[in-house]
Structure formats: structure tokens, C-alpha cells
């Protein structure tokens, strides 16, 4: 997500501490130079990742620091998970497998790499799912697990807690 604020002296420093305090991760700090110097305030954009549910606490802390947040731009699909599937992926309707996740509305398959060594042997695919929230990601993975069971596919999940 992006936070925009006026860059008065000291504001940037004041903004950074609360971000790390709520477990956020700063990706970029961008100064908007087009604002006239006469107003003596530059616009600053901070692009950051924030764990779910921490936004209101962050805004509260920023207000306490006297930082004036002009605009918040929340980006969706912050959670990403990559899995590998092995089995007869084409014969068991790969687009249906992908579709079952996409139809949830809150999680979607954003990348798929498929390797098919020979017609009769099992194929392997790497699939990346993105979702808006952790809960939705868990749900998407649950769906994938149950589809895999029905279609006799092997799902390899990442080691990290999903």
C-alpha cells in the first residue's frame, strides 16, 4: 500500500518508526518533486507492506507523531503462495482446477508453469496464488487440497506456514 504525506522537516523520520513498530516493511520512499517549493512542503509517498489488521494502529501512531497522511492507497492481493502440483493435470482439467480457486473471488491464480514430459506420464506444474488476506489464502489452499484429492493429484506446499 502507499501512504502519501507532506514532507515537512522531520516528518519522514517520524513516519518510519511507527511503520516498523507495527511490523511493516518499507519498500520505497518517493518524493513528489512537482509540488511548488513555496508551500515549503514536499509530498512524500511511502510504499510499504503491512501485516493484516495493523493499518488503523499505524494511522493512530502516525497521528501521535504529528505526521499528516494525505492519502492511503491500499493494494490488493498482498499474500502470495507458490505450490507445485504433480499428476495427470491436463486429463483432470487444469482450467477447472485453476477456476475453482479463481471463483472464490478473493484469491486468484496469477502464474502457472507446466511441464509435460510425455503424454502418458504425470505432468508437474508450479502455481502461484495471490489473495487479499491470510484467511482467504488458507481457504484457497484448502480448496486446492480437496480438488487434488478428488483428482488424485499430489500437492507440494511450501515449508512456511500457509
Amino acid at each position: 500500500m502507499k501512504l502519501e504525506m507532506r514532507d515537512r522537516p522531520g516528518q519522514l523520520v517520524a513516519a518510519l518508526q511507527p511503520i516498523s513498530a507495527v511490523g511493516g516493511n518499507i519498500i520505497a520512499v518517493i518524493h513528489q518533486r512537482e509540488t511548488p517549493a513555496a508551500t515549503e512542503a514536499l509530498d512524500v509517498q511511502i510504499v510499504l507492506e503491512l501485516p493484516e489488521g495493523r493499518l488503523s494502529r499505524l494511522l493512530e501512531l502516525l497521528r501521535e507523531q504529528g505526521v499528516n497522511v494525505v492519502r492511503i492507497d491500499e493494494e490488493r492481493l498482498l499474500y502470495e503462495c507458490t505450490l507445485i502440483m504433480i499428476g495427470h493435470l491436463m486429463h483432470t482439467d487444469l482450467s477447472d482446477t485453476v477456476g475453482r480457486i479463481d471463483t472464490t473471488g478473493s484469491a486468484e491464480v496469477t502464474e502457472l508453469s507446466l511441464v509435460m514430459p510425455a503424454i502418458s506420464s504425470p505432468s508437474s506444474a508450479r502455481i502461484t496464488i495471490r489473495s487479499t488476506t491470510r484467511t482467504e489464502m488458507k481457504k484457497a489452499i484448502r480448496i486446492l487440497r480437496s480438488v487434488a484429492e478428488q483428482k488424485n493429484l499430489l500437492i507440494i506446499e511450501p515449508l512456511e506456514d500457509t
Binding site: 504433480i86 499428476g87 511441464v115 514430459p117 506420464s121 508437474s124 508450479r126 499430489l154
Partner: peptide
């Protein structure tokens, strides 16, 4: 037993 060298390669790509 069902793992394929392709699956390992897909993992290695990342």
C-alpha cells in the same frame, strides 16, 4: 514416490 524431476526443476527455478 510420486515426485518427478520436473517438479524439482520447477522448484529450483525459484
Amino acid at each position: 514416490t510420486l515426485l518427478t524431476p520436473e517438479a524439482l526443476r520447477l522448484a529450483e527455478d525459484q
